[in-house]
Design a protein around this nucleic acid. Structure first.
Length: 120
RNA sequence: GCUGUUCGUUAUAUAAUCGCGUAGUGUGGGAACAUUAUGAGGAAAGUCCGGGCAUCACAGAGCAGGGUAGCUGAUAACAUCAGCCGAGGGCGACCUUAGGGCAAGUGCAACAGAGAUAUACCGCAGCGGCUUUCAGCGGCUGUAAGGGUGGAAAGGCGAGGCAAGAGCUCACCGGAAUUCGGGAGACCGGAUUGCCAUGUAAACCCUAUCCGAUGCAACGCCGAUUGGUACGGGGAAUAAUGUGUCUGCUCGACGCACCCCGUUUAAGGCGGCUGGACUCUUUUGGCGACGAAAGAGCUAGAUAGAUGAUUAUACACGACAGAACCCGGCUUAUCGACGGACAGCAUUU
RNA sequence: UGGGAUAUCGCCAAGCGGUAAGGCAAGGGACUUUGACUCCCUCAUGCGCAGGUUCAAAUCCUGCUAUCCCAA
């Protein structure tokens, strides 16, 4: 699970999550809530939060998979447009399991990317 | 054909592209890459029972505490399952059933009612008395049939009997004791005696029987700085005292206290981890649960947590729902589809 | 993942087999010129849901549902 193999790295520690929730820029859509924060070096990092409110274990798994797949597909686009590296935390909402990956992708492109561009 | 009862099976499929976990093989110094195989359930869920496995004194004793409660069997074990018995429900197939003991002791039974485990209010009778007449008043004695209350009034119901009544006597029914027969047993059937016990143990309790505690975040191994603690070994002491662990208490057991020597905990990683009371097929024993033999097979093992996405086609348009140490059950959720057996009713032959 | 607790009126709650105390809030009335304070009256059709035991269940038993806590 080193950083060479994957295009992105998973955020694990509770400390990183709470840091992003406090200091990161938030983007709210009907599919998810996203927190972004620039990073100095390394790879892009991804964290997904699926709370109890999303549903039972099947729905939480589905939400996680959809977001991960959408991020995987949009990752090259992010790298083309942006030079810097970022931390992302996606929080799933109760609608998320009923959505499709394409919808999440378009949401990321439309809402999240401009926000990051503004950050510089 | 309609209405049911019951037992099973199944749980979208196919193709293409991109992507993920594990294992094998190959290339490579390594990171990694390529390729092949494989990758959630009938309930994986709830965590309600039982067992394996691991550690704690190798698993102690007594009391306390908790579980179970018709019988026989199945099983590693069980509160599970099978067959049977009793009770209840259904025309029936069939279904439901915590189903030991209030005759060891204690408790509780509100309100109502005269009276709640014994009683006598209204009554029903007999005796004698007073007021004196077609009756009334109070007294003594007998009684529990009738009245009303209640969930329950001391067996039920009918006949005899009697002053009136009463298991007072008798027949039938219910229950009890003794006894005979049948059965592996629960229990069933018969005979005799005799006239009798309110309900409640999912109240305390008694009887029989079972249970040590903690749970893979158990447990074992590796592990940097710093600090101090913990662990191991040896010695002294083993009289007393204090204290820790073994379940709550009592006993009992093993330590600790003083000295010397050695090692080391905590982030994290690896093991435990999946080959097992396993799966399938055939034969076979048993009414059945289940067992035996032979052959074949290997079928998830993640660690912020792998099964997804997109497109196309088909139809019944896809429910409930995601392994986390492993098994056996129970309970709960569930769109539907298919099959077997059986019952009742109607019609036809 | 494992272990434990709770659920009673809109809110806080008592109740340990005999038919749901109390306070706050709400509604009505009295007092007052009016308001507040104070006083009186009203307010649970069953105690999270479904079964069972019992003459009788919020209470006892069983199974579910929801919420909360602990270990990490």
């Amino acid at each position: 699970m080193s950083e060479y193999k994957k295009r992105y790295v998973v955020i694990k520690s509770n400390r990183d999550f709470s840091y992003l929730f406090k200091k990161g820029e938030s983007v709210v859509t009907y599919g998810f809530i996203c927190y972004v924060k620039p990073r100095r070096a390394g790879k892009n990092r991804l964290g997904i939060v699926t709370g109890k409110k999303v549903g039972n274990a099947v729905k939480r798994n589905r939400a996680r998979r959809i977001i991960r797949e959408a991020f995987r597909l949009t990752d090259p686009i992010i790298k083309e447009k942006l030079t810097g590296r970022y931390d992302f935390v996606f929080v799933a909402r109760s609608k998320t399991p009923s959505l499709k990956t394409g919808q999440i992708m378009s949401l990321i492109e439309k809402s999240v990317l401009p926000k990051i561009m503004n950050l510089g």
